[in-house]
Write a protein that binds this DNA or RNA. Structure first.
Lengths: 175, 175, 175, 175
DNA sequence: CATGAATGAGCATTCATTCAT
DNA sequence: AATGAATGAATGCTCATTCAT
């Protein structure tokens, strides 16, 4: 990975997250990265390839972010960490960009990256089971759905009070 | 509103919902509507104007959809109706298109249409208040967020079991 | 066929004949025709479509050119007319352009437009038959081949003395 | 001439002959030759230089091919050999590639390589003279032209029966 | 000798928009 | 109201070529 390759990747991530994949032209990316437009294609074949490279980069960062949650042995602590995730992401400029891009792509290209969430889902099920909830699968699913909504609002609705909402949810789950 | 005007609006709604605003060219809309491309601009000034016209059309349909909920006097019944909304929308092909478009636009243009939801929020607050919930505002906000997540998944995740989830949520709220 | 459409066609014919199909950019055609580049695509879909339109135009002109030969009742006169064809073409600036393009395309795209020649071949066979040649088919084929060579040289080899060669061939066939 | 140099030359010959000079990118040549694109420029300065190298290579092979004809002392035998040349070339895969390229370039770049043919022309003149033809120069020129046509068809027209045509021509010249 | 990163100009094509009819 | 010709700017991508290593 050369220096310019990274510059392209970073510029593209930022622009795709801000303005969307289709609305961001390769020439804009090149200009922002301070490289020639042709270089994008030499390294990533085409615009789609550039997106894939960014998504993969995101997957890896997501894995890191998730591993801390999934490996948590204490059920209550696990729930707490998961619920606090959006807040944590929002305060980390770089992570926020990745997350925003994930959501934007979800809607722009209508592809829901399920597999990434399965490991989280299973961890939540185990946690709810441990905490003696009656229907751990449904509880896990509900929480996942709620967090999707929380992330949506946290990203899009400028006035949304994410920490208030987070606190209230933790209270609900007694964590 | 002439016949051709309506044809344009319908074609645009469908295409914008399916493929996104920016990805849909005016020529595609014209072709789908069976009119000349110029006519779009005569009637709606520019592409943005066409989008605004569709959004406004959506607002009106949303109002209709919401009025039934907002005017419901019984608190439990109100919650039930609101929770069942995504399911209802998903089974109505035309309504689904509108809803999908709303979400797509939310993400593509990053504008969260808050004002439309305020009347719903107030109705929910009243309902939770009536049902003696301790923090009716926070409860209303939580439910709104949850429903955002539910709609997201219902639209995007093909495997999502919307009716199961709906049933579970109703159970949680005892409605 | 609007005025600009014709301008495009003429400019393209000239440029394709002079510099070849692939070497001529659509922007060059547009500039030479004095129109916007986009107009080419509105009228002819793509560069290939532009070429097809020109080729078809050429077919029609070729038909005119050939009809005079094919319909000639006198065998000797028919041969004479056919042999003199390259000379006639070379002296008609517009016809020469068409012919040059035909040959260039033959080589650039490796497609030999046989069907256009079949009616000529049949006319030649009849003529040789009438003139009591032993193997009229082979004679027709030979003359066709010779004329291919004559045209090739007449177009490409600047020093080629086309009228001398034509005279000698007529002498050979006693026409 | 290093091994890689030869690989480049062979790959380029094949591609130029198949797809034309302008349509073949240097990157395609490099890939086909299994070398880096830069190496082409180190060895041949630019794309044009690569073409010249191939053409020169062709000249040498043509000389070999022609020497057998030119040095033939018997006039009839000389004619026969020359007339059979296209057939011989067509059956030699490698020679055919060279020949095809020569013709393609002739049309693509509109340069008719006359000098290569002068020695053949002179040999033909001597032969026709020896055989007491009245106008040996014109006869030589006619045969050269005919063979141009024969080669054209032999290469381009898939259905062309080259051996039949060859046989008929030999018959005509009684060789 | 050989590579592969890097460039800038150019390519065919699409786009939103204007305008005369 | 409605059309279809016309435009100019932009788009994703390819090209021949250069250069540091």
């Amino acid at each position: 990975m050369t220096e310019k390759q990274e510059k392209i990747l970073n510029a593209a991530l930022k622009l795709f997250a801000e303005e969307g994949f289709r609305s961001t032209s390769t020439s804009k990316v090149a200009k922002a990265a301070g490289v020639s437009e042709g270089l994008i294609f030499r390294h990533f074949t085409n615009k789609e390839g550039l997106l894939q490279a960014i998504i993969q980069m995101g997957e890896e960062r997501a894995k890191e972010l998730f591993s801390d949650i999934v490996l948590e042995p204490d059920a209550k602590e696990l729930l707490r960490k998961y619920i606090e995730l959006p807040l944590k992401v929002k305060n980390d400029k770089e992570a926020l960009e990745f997350w925003k891009l994930q959501f934007k792509i979800k809607w722009e290209l209508e592809l829901y990256g399920e597999h990434k969430m399965i490991v989280i889902e299973e961890a939540l099920i185990r946690a709810f089971d441990q905490l003696r909830y009656n229907e751990p699968e449904k509880e896990a699913n509900l929480l996942l759905t709620l967090m999707d909504g929380l992330a949506t609002r946290g990203i899009l609705q400028e006035t949304y009070e994410l920490d208030e909402a987070t606190k209230f949810i933790k209270q609900k789950y007694k964590v």
